[in-house]
Nucleic acid binder design. Structure first.
Length: 387
RNA sequence: GGUGGGGUGGCCGAGUGGCUAAUGGCAGCAGACUGUAAAUCUGCCGGGUUAACGCCCUACGAAGGUUCGAAUCCUUCCCCCACCA
């Protein structure tokens, strides 16, 4: 099959645009995603500590998983034999799989990049695994996600232009190989999959422009990834690059800002034309005791919460906030009880999902400019409610 | 009563003449985390003063002694543990 064959399965139905911000409905074989939206990250076919039922209840519409990690364990062929990722992990909503491109960055000490692909030394047992655009497409086919990301070359955010150009141009060459690999497959996917290209180019506007244009002209894409951000560069650089990319990508397709992010980055991203986000922050930070609130972040382990009877966030109706006090949640963390990790993860994911739902409403109402300004002002004022 | 072992900073526990305000670990107090090698990592952690460097004080059961110098050596005492009687 080719990436252009199942257009109707991945239509992006724009509802309203206010400046760069948009509200839309993204159709996938496993349901519709109302955007802007935050996707929870389930690298190992699990959003750490959360049951798919929790995600449903929270209102999470789409989740992520990862080709590199699932290939190593338990193996993408095993997952294929179980009917694919949706069936294996019992999540029947839309799934997006990342290609392993991020691991080129995060596992820098364990891999070697060449034009052909990337040789990883497994972080689990040291064994060697070669990932190429071709093998990655096969892995992502086996996993069976709705949206599959191209294999790309991610570099640190502060990388100089020559390094960024090299990685960006390589990613574009790899994109063509991803398409060719899919076209060569014997049988069509059980359910259609949309391959998203990824715009790279570091913090260099000209590179980003070139990459976006080259990608845009190279196919009829169902959506676009914006990668290589929130990897060490300064926030103003990230926002600036988003504006550059926003101007270059077609407005009638979804844009997915990969790996972002923190609450303020989601709002800033929405204002710059981003539709989809994902980030490990809500779950990882939740496991480490950090809590998102509308008044900034707080750390539940702090001594000041020892006797605090209030919920994490007075305005939140998640399963943690509607039942438990800060004092109790702090106790769970201090006592190293696993329920604490789970409840904070639940709250943080809920917070981001709800934040995007609010942004979406504000776009539909036409009040997004004021909403975002007010929300950011309050969040940055960091008057975190304390005891 | 005898013999042996031991008493170190909130706790556990190294150290056996100067590099020791004293290794580690825990507890405590803060901070970080952005397509997850993460329920992880980092910093502080006797008191006073200082922006900091530093300076001063107190401290290795107690008291005394040896020494230029002691948590470390000697003497006496107190307490704990084991075994013997």
């Amino acid at each position: 099959m080719s990436v252009t064959e199942h257009v109707s399965d991945f239509t992006f139905e724009l509802e309203r645009e206010i400046g760069s911000a948009r509200a839309a409905r993204f159709h996938t074989p496993h349901g519709v995603v109302e955007t802007p939206a935050f996707m929870a990250v389930g690298t190992l076919a699990t959003v750490k500590s959360l049951d798919p039922r929790d995600l449903r209840e929270i209102g999470c519409q789409m989740i992520l998983s990862n080709a590199y990690h699932l290939h190593l364990r338990p193996g993408d062929e095993l997952i294929r034999d179980f009917g694919g990722l949706h069936e294996f992990m019992r999540w029947d909503g839309p799934i997006l799989t990342d290609s392993g491109g991020f691991q080129v960055f995060s596992l820098e000490g364990l891999r070697t990049v060449s034009e052909d692909g990337v040789e990883f030394r497994s972080h689990l047992d040291g064994s060697t695994h070669v990932f190429t655009p071709e093998t990655v497409m096969q892995i992502e086919r086996n996993l069976g996600a709705d949206v599959i990301m191209q294999f790309d070359h991610v570099i640190p955010g502060q990388s100089e232009e020559s390094v960024a150009r090299d990685a960006s141009e390589r990613s574009i060459r790899w994109l063509a190989r991803c398409v060719a690999a899919i076209d060569k497959m014997d049988a069509p996917a059980t359910k259609p999959q949309a391959l998203f290209p990824i715009v790279q180019g570091g913090i260099h506007a000209s590179l980003r422009r070139e990459a976006a244009r080259a990608i845009r002209q190279s196919g009829d894409w169902r959506g676009f990834g914006i990668g290589g951000l929130s990897v060490g560069e300064a926030k103003p650089d990230m926002y600036r690059i988003l504006e550059v990319v926003d101007a270059e990508l077609p407005r009638d397709k979804p844009r997915y800002l990969m790996g972002v992010g923190f609450p303020e980055d989601l709002v800033e991203g929405v204002m710059r034309g981003v539709d989809l986000f994902d980030c490990v922050a809500p779950t990882r930070m939740g496991r480490n005791g950090a809590v998102f609130t509308n008044d900034g972040r707080l750390n539940i382990k702090r001594a000041e919460f020892r006797t605090d009877r209030r919920p994490l966030d007075e305005e939140c109706d998640c399963a943690a906030c509607s039942r438990f006090s800060r004092a109790y949640l702090r106790h769970l963390f201090v006592a190293d009880e696993m329920l604490g990790l789970r409840l904070l993860s639940l709250h943080n994911v809920h917070f981001l999902v709800r934040l995007m739902r609010s942004a979406r409403s504000a776009i539909q109402d036409g009040t997004i400019d004021a909403w975002s300004r007010d929300w950011l002002a309050r969040y940055h004022s960091r008057k975190v409610p304390t005891a």
